[in-house]
Deep mutational scan, measured.
Amino acid sequence: MDEEYDVIVLGTGLTECILSGIMSVNGKKVLHMDRNPYYGGESSSITPLEELYKRFQLLEGPPESMGRGRDWNVDLIPKFLMANGQLVKMLLYTEVTRYLDFKVVEGSFVYKGGKIYKVPSTETEALASNLMGMFEKRRFRKFLVFVANFDENDPKTFEGVDPQTTSMRDVYRKFDLGQDVIDFTGHALALYRTDDYLDQPCLETVNRIKLYSESLARYGKSPYLYPLYGLGELPQGFARLSAIYGGTYMLNKPVDDIIMENGKVVGVKSEGEVARCKQLICDPSYIPDRVRKAGQVIRIICILSHPIKNTNDANSCQIIIPQNQVNRKSDIYVCMISYAHNVAAQGKYIAIASTTVETTDPEKEVEPALELLEPIDQKFVAISDLYEPIDDGCESQVFCSCSYDATTHFETTCNDIKDIYKRMAGTAFDFENMKRKQNDVFGEAEQ
């Protein structure tokens, strides 16, 4: 370990593993360490099931009705991949897709007046949907046509809207959309967690709705994908990429100290040895004095023996409960997957309800979601602090990732990755940087 590296990475969460992969592909010498004996950090999948019970201090362990412990891979952080989103792009560019198998999530649902409705995925579904009345549908269709044709580089498509100054509230007004449709559009399509976006320039919202539609167009059922064997497969896929390009991995490796000289990182000390480096990437748990708390998320993992009611017996789905429907500031989400994804025993389902904490009784906040899941065989409640770095790391060369937020997709995580890359490399992130180099010394032969 007593060696000189360009970059040392602490923690094998998804953000850290993707950055480690990119740095290795770009010719950097990388050492990647984790104090845990497993990959994934906060974003790991726990197996066998006995391990999950232990982690949540349920000492009696799983009953026999849960089947074989080894058949379970339970995500600690519930997220899906947008089919046309940035993480899929990263997987394709790096060819990490060859280590993973994905399934399309069967449906996306939205909560309205105590019931759940399928988010329409085709024009026919939209016309048949009970989510809105006849005239509302016509106006909504006009709005969707506007979004589909919108091109930020072609003012002819703006229809009198200025993407940089017109607020989204004004765009909704222009198409005369009612409150329910606005809730549905902002939260189930643009996937905002709160209503803060309404008074911001509309460009980002329009682009988010386009991303949803384009992702949906790829597979038809929903815009989301999920990897077989759980999300823990993602960091491992990128760790393989890093290793192929010469990255060194050490799990179960305690970090005793991060060594600084004149305010700059110069190395990491572990078990009496020092590895030197020019730059350091880590998750917040490794540098508690360089991060601040930015809120909390509650996630309740529920094991069920039945599909969720009114989802047409889907073996995977997402449910969004827009905040307006339950008098909150932030949406509540449910991600459900099952034995069909090799993450649970035969006939079992895993539904994870999550939201940003707003009160001193977080469990009560998630109740509307839990009511949709009854009866629940077993619950595991996790309340996590969200951390963000206190500075950009440019001076110390210590670059810290943000905690995983309450969103049900990876777009915010990818933004964090691109942002850290830019601060480390001094140049904007470009997907081309992730391409495997042809015929290089570490390149794998085609399968």
Rank of each mutant, 00 (worst) to 15 (best):
N252G: 03
E152S: 07
L198I: 14
S213K: 12
E95G: 06
V265F: 04
F410W: 00
S396D: 13
K142Y: 03
L92I: 01
I352W: 08
K269S: 12
V265L: 08
F184P: 14
V104A: 09
Y38V: 00
I8G: 01
E358R: 05
Y229C: 09
A369H: 02
T359I: 01
K103G: 13
E152A: 02
Y39D: 01
L241R: 11
K103S: 02
L280D: 02
Y349I: 14
G393C: 04
E204D: 03
I182T: 09
D283H: 08
F431Y: 02
R292I: 12
L100E: 05
P201S: 09
K348T: 11
E233K: 02
S242D: 12
D196H: 13
G133E: 13
G11C: 04
Q200R: 09
C400G: 12
N153V: 09
V334I: 11
K118I: 12
R299F: 10
I259A: 06
E214A: 03
M260I: 10
N312T: 13
T94R: 06
F146V: 03
N433R: 02
L216W: 10
V161I: 10
V145W: 03
T248L: 11
R292M: 02
K174T: 10
D440F: 15
G247L: 10
V255S: 14
G69V: 04
I258S: 04
T412S: 01
I301T: 11
G13D: 02
M82R: 03
E233G: 11
S121C: 02
A344G: 04
I337T: 10
T427A: 11
A148L: 09
V119N: 13
D440Y: 04
E3P: 10
T412H: 06
V326T: 12
P254H: 02
E152K: 10
G69S: 07
K435A: 14
K264I: 12
G69D: 12
Y286W: 15
K103D: 13
T359S: 08
M82A: 03
V274G: 03
G160K: 12
M260S: 07
G11L: 04
R141I: 09
L370M: 01
Y333D: 06
P322I: 12
M66H: 09
A406I: 14
L231E: 08
T97A: 11
I420L: 13
K210I: 09
P307W: 09
S129Y: 00
K348R: 11
C335D: 11
I390S: 02
E371G: 12
R328Q: 12
L91E: 03
C394I: 00
E444L: 01
E261D: 05
Y38G: 04
P307R: 02
L251V: 12
N327R: 13
K437L: 12
S316R: 00
I281L: 10
I116S: 07
G246A: 04
L92K: 13
F158C: 13
L251S: 04
V171S: 14
K348V: 13
P63T: 01
K115R: 12
S401C: 11
S401Q: 09
V357D: 10
A83T: 09
V161F: 09
S242L: 04
V147I: 08
D377S: 13
K174V: 14
F146I: 10
K174G: 13
G237V: 04
C277S: 07
L203F: 11
L191I: 00
C402F: 06
E50D: 10
N433D: 11
L177R: 01
V104G: 02
D440T: 07
D257C: 15
Q378P: 02
S24Y: 00
S384R: 10
L58F: 05
C17Y: 02
S65N: 13
R98G: 04
R292L: 09
L10D: 03
A369T: 06
V291M: 05
C317Y: 03
P284L: 03
P37Y: 11
D170A: 12
T15E: 07
G11T: 01
T194R: 03
D71R: 04
V25I: 08
D283T: 12
S403P: 09
I18V: 09
E358Y: 15
T356I: 07
D385I: 15
K364G: 12
I320V: 13
T408E: 14
G114E: 10
R436S: 00
Y99C: 05
A445I: 08
V265H: 10
I259T: 06
L92E: 04
L92R: 10
P362F: 10
F175S: 03
N439L: 13
L144H: 12
F80S: 04
G41H: 14
S24E: 02
E358G: 05
Q346E: 05
I209R: 01
C282H: 14
V147D: 13
G61W: 06
K54G: 04
S129F: 03
R141P: 08
V30P: 04
Y117I: 04
M66I: 06
C317V: 05
D162C: 14
R139P: 05
F135S: 08
Y39H: 06
P368H: 07
S215H: 15
G295L: 08
S316H: 00
E95W: 09
S401G: 02
M168P: 02
S215F: 03
L241D: 08
I18L: 13
M66T: 08
R328V: 01
Q323Y: 09
I259P: 02
W72M: 00
R292K: 15
S242M: 07
L58M: 00
N439D: 10
G40E: 02
L191H: 08
L203P: 10
N153M: 15
V161A: 07
Y117W: 13
R141C: 06
E204W: 14
A340P: 00
V110E: 15
D2G: 05
K115G: 03
D2C: 01
A190E: 00
F56M: 00
V25T: 05
I352C: 13
L14N: 03
Q179Y: 14
H187S: 15
L203H: 07
F429Y: 13
S222M: 13
A344T: 07
L49R: 04
T427M: 09
L304G: 15
W72S: 02
T408M: 00
L216C: 00
G295C: 08
V7E: 07
T412R: 11
G114F: 06
D75S: 14
E432Q: 03
G347K: 15
M336E: 14
N315G: 09
F143P: 03
S108V: 09
F140I: 02
P223L: 03
K112Q: 03
E365G: 04
F146R: 06
S44R: 11
D2R: 05
F410V: 08
T185V: 10
A445G: 12
K137T: 11
E271L: 09
K137H: 08
P63S: 11
T194K: 13
K221E: 10
E432M: 15
N262C: 14
T157N: 00
V88L: 05
V343W: 15
T359G: 13
D257H: 01
R193G: 12
Y53Q: 14
T408R: 09
C394A: 04
R55W: 08
A275P: 02
S129P: 06
D199H: 12
D170E: 00
P362T: 00
I209V: 11
L59D: 02
G13W: 11
K156R: 12
N252M: 14
D430S: 11
I303V: 12
C400V: 08
G27A: 05
K89D: 04
K264L: 06
V255L: 07
Q200L: 14
Y249C: 08
D313S: 13
F109W: 04
G237Y: 04
Y212F: 03
R35H: 12
E367D: 04
D180F: 14
I46Y: 14
Y38R: 02
N26H: 13
A243N: 05
G232R: 05
Y229R: 15
N433E: 13
E136V: 03
I18Y: 01
A425G: 11
G11W: 01
D196A: 12
I8N: 06
M260T: 06
Q57C: 14
D331A: 03
Q236H: 02
T94I: 02
K174N: 00
K364R: 10
I300G: 05
V145R: 12
K379E: 07
D162I: 14
A406E: 15
F143R: 05
I337S: 13
L76T: 09
P254F: 15
T94A: 07
Q447H: 06
N324D: 10
G246E: 04
V381M: 09
T124I: 13
